[in-house]
């Protein structure tokens, strides 16, 4: 029951992009095609879950016991960026097809604030490891969902005659705003 609440809340109610404003750079950067959006979503899910597990371990076995919580930001970002490198190398060797699909997105992960944001939220919400993993996966699904929907909208927008001043980024932002408005309808279901 607790897991269902976490999942519904992360995907629909508190969508990481549309309600919490995390991961906006890839949200606008790689949402021009549905296929790339899905690839990015897959990469985010992969890295976010691993990052949540690793930072959880570091927090509970190193930072908290030694009273070093103030080093959280430094350690997390270092761990996440080396993790991304490692995943890239391992993926290249172990599963070339997966690397082909996700590879180009991996370098973008380090500066994706959704990854670090979720890692910090897992600790702040005092989740257990299992709930933390569910939380991370659910947020990644929510991220992918938002990304794919926006990509779909953008593919349609290309065929539309947009007023000159609003072409490009402004109209995409307004579309994202309307999407966020639609997602607000889910508020209160959990």
């Amino acid at each position: 029951m607790e897991y269902i609440a976490i999942v519904l809340s992360a995907i629909l109610v508190n969508n990481i992009v549309l309600a919490q404003f995390l991961g906006l750079c890839p949200f606008f950067g790689v949402s021009n095609r549905i296929s790339t959006a899905a690839g990015m979503g897959g990469a985010v899910m992969f890295v976010m879950t691993i990052a949540a597990i690793v930072t959880y371990m570091i927090s509970h076995y190193i930072l908290i016991p030694f009273d070093l919580i103030y080093l959280r930001t430094v350690t997390y970002i270092l761990v996440i960026s080396s993790l991304v490198q490692m995943v890239e190398i391992i993926l290249k060797k172990v599963s070339p097809p997966l690397y082909q699909a996700l590879g180009i997105f991996l370098p973008l992960m380090t500066t994706n604030c959704a990854i670090l944001g979720v890692a910090i939220l897992v600790i702040q919400n005092e989740y257990t490891l299992m709930s933390g993993v569910v939380f991370a996966i659910a947020h990644a699904i929510g991220f992918t969902l938002a990304l794919v929907i926006l990509a779909g909208i953008r593919e349609q927008l290309e065929l539309v005659n947009v007023p000159k001043g609003m072409r490009g980024n402004p109209v995409i932002l307004v579309a994202a705003g309307l999407l966020a408005l639609a997602f607000m309808g889910f508020a209160g279901i959990v």
Partner: peptide
């Protein structure tokens, strides 16, 4: 004040 307004307001400011 809510989330959607943030996107929309930024859209118009960028324009």
């Amino acid at each position: 004040v809510l989330a959607p307004g943030a996107f929309i307001a930024l859209g118009y400011l960028i324009a």
